[in-house]
Amino acid sequence: MKTIGVLGIQGAIEKHIEVVRTLGDRAVRVLEKEQLKQIDALIIPGGESTSILSQLKWYDLFEPLRQALQEGLPVFGTCAGLILLAGELDALDVTVRRNAYGSQIDSFKTNLKVEGIDHEIPAFFIRAPRIEQVGEGAEVLSRFQNNPVLVRQRQGSCMAAAFHPELTDDVSVHKLFLDNL
């Protein structure tokens, strides 16, 4: 059994914890830098990236987290998690624009084909960020209307989604991440 940390500052923390437990792994809410050494992988949930980023810095978590990611701590980010991994945490070779699909009335659900998953998965896009460029260091695992929506760093294990697999009963995106650890 693996121990998966879910960054416990803000957002849909509980939803990710439920999915990890459904898949048979241990899930812990991470709020202290010491915990980063006690986990096999980290999930950064959706929420408000500005609030999560400010709080990471106030609590002296930002540098330890950035370093842990550099040293190879596997990480999966959704929505706000994608924004942080592509931006300030500098763990993913893509560029992202926040709220690029518009405000809440433009939020939507769709089904996606994903490389490595044998069926279409349901996906919610909530005030979603858009992945505008994918660098050589990253690969695209899924697209929606030609836009990359699920990406993975070629080296190491950093994966991120513009959508929210944790809001559905389909656990296969999390499984894809956890199986690769």
């Binding site: 416990g8 500052i9 849909a12 923390i13 939803k15 929420g47 609030s51 809440q104 929210h164 809001l167």
Partner: peptide, 17 residues
């Protein structure tokens, strides 16, 4: 409905804040 779940989805993102 998808619309209902999208609405609750945003509420989920606002948890813990």
């Amino acid at each position: 409905s998808d619309l209902w779940q999208t609405k609750v989805g945003l509420a989920e993102m606002l948890r813990n804040g």
